[in-house]
């Protein structure tokens, strides 16, 4: 795990923690706002979390070429995750409540 310096590791781990926190906050917001479409968005953010785990695992093993399949898996879950995000945003847009603006 020495290919990444400590600051670069901190940057990576903070991104993952923040994304997880965002998933949790959006889940809470779904309950509080009464707009269930937010719950869908928080679930739609999970594939990107898997993608991030793949990247971090690959970095942990010093970006070993034999583990390059992890990068392909990361890329695939990124595509999947962005599609699920788009679907969730589409549902939000479909069920939009005109005056409810936080």
């Amino acid at each position: 795990m020495h290919v990444l310096s400590i600051p670069t590791w901190i940057i990576h781990i903070s991104s993952v923690i923040e994304w997880t926190a965002a998933i949790w906050l959006i889940w809470l917001y779904a309950d509080l706002s009464g707009n269930r479409a937010w719950r869908l968005l928080s679930l739609a953010m999970l594939p990107a979390l898997v993608s991030a785990m793949c990247a971090c695992t690959w970095h942990f093993f010093d970006n070993t070429p034999t583990l390059e399949w992890l990068v392909t898996l990361q890329a695939s879950t990124t595509v999947l995750g962005n599609v699920t995000l788009m679907v969730a945003a589409w549902v939000l847009w479909k069920n939009r409540q005109p005056e409810l603006k936080p």
Binding site: N35, L85, M86, Q97, L100
Partner: peptide, 10 residues
């Protein structure tokens, strides 16, 4: 995703 999220104004 950005397009729909922006349009939703939510």
């Amino acid at each position: 995703f950005l397009w729909f999220l922006t349009r939703s104004r939510q």
